[in-house]
Simulated assay, not measured.
Amino acid sequence: MPRSIWKGAISFGLVTIPIKLYSATEEKDISFRQVHPTDGGRIKYKRVCEKCGKEIPYAEIAKGYELPDGRLVILTSEDFDDLPLSTTKAVEVVQFVAEEEVDPTYFAKTYFLQADGPGIKPYVLLRDALTKTGKSAVVKVALRSRESLALIRSKDDVLLMHTMLWPDELRDGSFAAPPSEVTVSDAEVTMAQSFIDALSGDFEPEEYHDSYREALEALVQSKAEGVPLEAEPEVQEQAEVVDLVAALRASVEAAKKRREAAAESKAV
């Protein structure tokens, strides 16, 4: 069982729900060390004070905030622990909303909420109430030295909490929009819809895998065994698309063949 990263309570009106917080995700990637290619020695870094030149142990390093006038304010771990902030140990429910109202761009990280001690019954109460109303709870919580908005929702038998970015942390993406004078025809939109229909289906994430990580693992294994890695066939560069309808029609046919092939492989 994983170790909880935070303990606190959800304030649900006058009801208090003691909880433990667990990370719901883990990134799986190949970890590399920085080495000297000549002899394989590891590259190490020292934390050296620029003023006295001494190497400083990590436990003795504090955080400093530079003011506009150049003065430096030093904050210790005790300063952060003593912040006059109610959300450091409490998850404050501020609103209930329909989940689809929240733009997924806001989501940062997902956590499991587990009832702690006497919190089991009120936990079940909140979970079932959210399920039956189809609502999610917008909350404020302080985690990892910062306060965040978050969304608590029920999924199966568990409450999940998605931490969220603040509105001023989302960048304006209007610069990425194509020029307004660029338009497409009804026929092009219809063919695009046909392509979407050809690839539509239920989302089954277990059918997808990280091809890049698999390729890296194969490369590392081949290097370790001294066996050359078999080269992948070169992908031919595609010519510039002039007729969108014709290109989409060909894409639809290719998509149908891929789905038929996938269905046949499942049936075997």
Rank of each mutant, 00 (worst) to 15 (best):
W6I: 00
K7H: 12
I10W: 06
I10H: 04
I10Q: 01
F12H: 05
F12C: 09
G13L: 04
I17H: 02
P18E: 02
P18I: 02
K20N: 15
A24W: 10
A24Y: 09
E26G: 05
E27K: 11
E27M: 10
I30D: 10
F32T: 00
Q34I: 07
H36E: 03
T38D: 15
K44A: 03
K44R: 15
C49P: 11
C52E: 08
C52Y: 07
C52V: 05
E55S: 12
E55F: 04
P57E: 12
A59L: 11
D69A: 02
L72K: 07
V73Q: 13
T76P: 00
D81S: 12
P84H: 09
L85P: 02
S86Q: 13
T87I: 06
T88E: 15
A90W: 00
V91E: 13
E92G: 04
V93N: 10
V93C: 13
V94D: 13
F96G: 08
A98Y: 12
E100R: 08
D103V: 04
P104N: 03
Y106D: 04
K109N: 13
K109R: 15
F112V: 06
F112W: 15
L113R: 03
D116P: 01
G117T: 07
G117C: 04
P118R: 14
P118C: 05
P118W: 06
G119L: 07
I120M: 14
Y123P: 00
A129H: 07
A129W: 07
T131K: 15
V138R: 13
V138K: 13
L143Q: 07
R144E: 10
E147I: 12
S148R: 14
S148M: 10
L149F: 09
R153L: 11
R153I: 01
K155S: 12
V158Q: 11
L160T: 10
M161D: 03
M164I: 00
L165W: 08
D168G: 04
E169V: 06
L170R: 11
R171I: 07
S174N: 01
S174K: 04
S174T: 12
A176D: 14
A176F: 13
P178K: 02
P178M: 04
P179T: 01
E181A: 08
V182G: 02
T183A: 05
S185C: 00
V189D: 02
M191R: 12
F195W: 11
A198G: 06
L199K: 12
L199V: 15
D202K: 15
E204S: 05
Y208P: 00
H209D: 14
D210C: 04
S211G: 07
L216K: 10
E217C: 03
A218K: 15
L219P: 03
V220D: 12
K223W: 03
A224T: 05
V227T: 15
P228I: 07
L229Q: 14
L229T: 10
A231D: 15
P233A: 06
E234A: 11
A239Q: 15
E240T: 07
V241F: 06
V241L: 05
L248V: 02
V252W: 08
A254N: 06
A255D: 11
K256N: 10
R258S: 14
R259Y: 07
R259S: 12
A261I: 00
A262Q: 14
